[in-house]
């Protein structure tokens, strides 16, 4: 049970880790192209085919990057820029869906699946551990090749 709890906590940590992209510090003054790209990396243009905004070559995306620069220059934080774009164009522009409503499933399902697999594995763990305790007595079923290799190496020693 304790093991299960550990796996569960680890999974939640994994989920938390997934849901928080690296933060970009708030920009003072005119933002550089790198500062704009750091924000644009986590945004998608709704008209392009699944290309992040920082590398999209279309004129529309260049305009969006200009808009990000303007917002950052006005003192918007990274999160405020994301919120602004999501409010304007819908949540599909965000590289990660905000953790609310149905979107929680994005973050919960994979860790739950891993917890479930861990649980199933853990259920058999005790049995295998018991067997492993007596493994010294168990004859190993090594393949012929490995056995002959070990024997030859032993003979050399």
């Amino acid at each position: 049970m304790r093991r299960l709890a550990v796996v569960f906590v680890l999974s939640l940590l994994l989920a938390a880790c997934v849901s928080s992209p690296a933060a970009v510090p708030t920009v003072q003054g005119t933002p550089s192209a790198d500062e704009v790209n750091a924000v644009a990396k986590n945004l998608y243009c709704p008209v392009c085919a699944n290309v992040p905004l920082d590398v999209c070559g279309t004129a529309a995306c260049a305009q969006w990057r200009g808009q990000i620069a303007e917002l950052l220059a006005e003192g918007y934080s990274e999160q405020q820029v994301y919120d602004y774009f999501a409010a304007q164009y819908g949540q599909s522009v965000l590289a990660l869906p905000p953790a609310r409503g149905l979107n929680w499933l994005v973050y919960v399902i994979p860790p739950l699946g891993i917890v479930l697999a861990g649980f199933l594995l853990g259920r058999n763990l005790a049995r295998w551990k018991q067997s492993a305790a007596g493994a010294a007595d168990l004859p190993t079923v090594d393949d012929d090749y490995a056995r002959s290799l070990e024997e030859e190496l032993k003979a050399r020693r």
């Binding site: 994994l14 880790c17 997934v18 992209p21 986590n42 998608y44 699944n50 992040p52 819908g90 949540q91 599909s92 522009v93 965000l94 590289a95 990660l96 869906p97 409503g101 149905l102 979107n103 994005v106 994979p110």
Partner: peptide, 18 residues
């Protein structure tokens, strides 16, 4: 408010971290 019907995007950061 839960089933909004808004399409979500799942980007590289999700796959890489997970």
């Amino acid at each position: 408010h839960i089933f909004t019907g808004q399409r979500a995007t799942v980007g590289p950061i999700f796959y890489e971290s997970a």
